[in-house]
Write a protein that binds this DNA or RNA. Structure first.
Length: 560
DNA sequence: AATAGGATCAACCGCTTGAAC
DNA sequence: TGTTCAAGCGGTTGATCCTAT
């Protein structure tokens, strides 16, 4: 018989009793599923459980559709299988998850995403349904609390794993590479991808496919000049790594960035390769669809070659992206933004979305445009995809704003180089620990030292490492709302920023906060807006609540 | 004590995969 | 090679429980 070892079982039993006027009523007419026969639906009764258990004990698992016939159960085979697998199997562990199991689930989810069955295989006695339910509730809880889905240790581990994967992948060459195998080896769920028809690219990239594969899409596009001379002759080392990111999304990213590159083409926009050298998350993973419309590709090629300032289709489906989207038949992530949302961010008047709004956006349906212009991972929910999605958001925002910039005829070459550099550092950024916030903060900024155009406002300070807050897209500064950043995100962003500028983690953070926040504030102050910096309270313009939250998250004092 | 809202969990649905034919 | 079917999987739903007010 079934041993009621957990509260949930007891509850379930009670529920079953409640729902079943007669415990022996195995086939009630009330709920019936299709197929013409009256198959019972709803909660299982203990009598049904008994029948099923006896049947399975006698005949073994499998052939579930025969259960109904031979046992008299009015349940479809599917239902029987599920009942057995989730509740009646003798090897099932009852009760709630132990802390060890919980940790394991988090770890596995970081690697596998929503592969509940695979996760269940790693957790003896646990079912996919159990794990799925646990995870979903946990996610909800964390989202409500505004906490990261994955603990820092898992994030770091994932990064390390991914780095190792990159190193491994970067050693590969060849024309047709199946990333899936390699990626599977590190436990990341990457769908099969075949790099076919890479030859198509060779013509205009003037790079071998293997080269192509070693090129981060972001760089490729950014420097499209892609004039052969730029095609990684210079520093064309093997620092570029393969991405463990879903190749589908990479294709989209490439596609997307082709557009960007078109818009941002500048004759002297040199690649800033070093930006990627240590970026574990800037790894190209080129997926090429064999059915891709060559003509469309060619048109992209032409565009690239001509440096023609093609404005990427913003609201319509661009011809170059459409075929890709169709051919790939991609699963689109839920976490993308509508064109209007993206567009609105590009406007100086629009502050960056708060995390709360991001949460909201995550729930938002995709616009067609966004789908076609964004790299699109499967929505499997792996840690990397979480990271990726945040990147794609940044890129989307950048792309849109960049398009706007083109339309505005704003194309200062030197500024462009800087902008490209910054974008590389941000858009193709390795995950700042919480990349979504880190780059959302930094992607907007152009180093003052790089700007030479007289019509560009210069920061009072041009010290390397200090950034003014001139947006790349316009001469206006962004209204970056730090108040809307989670404290941990903000701090992660800061550390990321410090790392980018070569600042040791042990050095004082206050100056960097000043760089990050002070200039912004001083700017706003100039605009008659925000508060001046107040070093005395070490808040740097942050709301006290925000700062206090940071301190709660991180074990250093405000006076650090 | 009543109740509203959130949490939990079991079960279902639709889709995909793979084997058999 | 195409079709059919069983099994598996992941997402979603709905019933119940729990808890705060």
């Amino acid at each position: 018989m079934i041993e009621m070892t957990s509260d949930s079982d007891k509850r379930k039993a009670a529920r079953c009793r409640k729902n079943s006027p007669g415990a022996e009523e195995v086939s009630s007419g009330g709920n019936s599923s299709g197929g013409g026969s009256s198959l019972k639906k709803g909660p299982w009764t203990s009598a049904e459980d008994t029948i099923l258990m006896e049947y399975v004990t006698k005949h073994g698992e499998g052939n579930w559709n025969a259960v109904q016939k031979h046992s008299g159960l009015s349940r479809c085979g599917k239902s029987c299988r599920l009942r057995w697998a989730n509740h009646l199997r003798p090897d099932l562990k009852k009760g709630s998850f132990t802390p060890e199991e919980e940790n394991r689930i988090i770890e596995l989810h970081a690697k596998m995403g929503n592969k509940w069955a695979r996760m269940a295989a790693e957790l003896p006695g646990r079912t996919d349904n159990e794990i799925k339910n646990y995870w979903n509730t946990r996610i909800k809880r964390l989202q409500r609390a505004g906490l990261p889905i994955y603990p820092a240790s898992v994030r770091m581990q994932a990064m390390n794993d991914s780095q190792q994967s990159d190193d491994m992948m970067s050693c590969q060459n060849g024309d047709n590479i199946h990333h899936s195998e390699a990626s599977e080896t590190n436990g990341f769920e990457i769908p099969d991808v075949e790099f076919k028809n890479l030859g198509i690219n060779q013509g205009y990239l003037n790079c071998s496919p293997s080269h192509l594969l070693d090129i981060p899409p972001s760089s490729l596009l950014h420097h499209k000049g892609l004039s052969s001379s730029n095609c990684y002759n210079n520093n064309n080392n093997n620092n570029y790594m393969f991405s463990a990111l879903n190749p589908h999304k990479r294709l989209r990213e490439v596609e997307n960035q082709f557009h960007v590159s078109v818009a941002s083409t500048s004759n002297n926009a040199f690649p800033t390769f070093e930006q990627h050298e240590d970026d574990p998350f800037v790894r190209p993973l080129w997926s090429y669809d064999p059915d891709l419309n060559v003509n469309n590709q060619t048109s992209s090629i032409d565009v690239l070659g001509s440096h023609a300032p093609i404005i990427i289709n913003g609201n319509n489906n661009s011809s170059s992206s459409e075929p890709v989207s169709e051919a790939m038949k991609l699963e689109l992530p839920s976490l993308q933004y509508s064109a209007s949302q993206v567009g609105s961010w590009a406007t100086p008047s629009s502050p960056l979305p708060s995390l709360e709004s991001v949460d909201t956006l995550i729930q938002s349906p995709l616009s067609e445009h966004t789908q076609s212009n964004c790299p699109s991972p499967r929505n499997s929910g792996t840690l990397e995809e979480v990271v990726y999605e945040s990147k794609s958001k940044k890129c989307s925002k950048y792309n849109t704003s960049h398009q706007q910039m083109m339309m505005d005829g704003f194309e200062s070459s030197s500024h462009n180089v800087v902008r490209e550099t910054i974008r590389d550092a941000c858009c193709g950024e390795p995950i700042s620990p919480l990349s979504n916030s880190a780059a959302s903060v930094f992607v907007e900024f152009t180093p003052a030292s790089g700007g030479s155009s007289s019509d560009e406002p210069q920061s009072a300070e041009t010290i390397p490492g200090k950034f003014d807050w001139v947006s790349a897209e316009s001469d206006e500064k962004k209204d970056v709302s730090f108040e809307n950043l989670r404290p941990d995100a903000l701090l992660d962003s800061l550390y990321w920023f410090r790392q980018r500028i070569g600042r040791s983690k042990d050095e004082s953070i206050t100056g960097d906060f000043g760089a990050l926040l002070g200039d912004d504030l001083s700017y706003e102050h100039k605009q008659g807006g925000a508060l001046p910096i107040d070093d005395s309270n070490q808040s740097f313009g942050l709301g006290f609540s925000t700062w206090d939250s940071i301190c709660a998250f991180y074990p250093f004092s405000k006076n650090d």
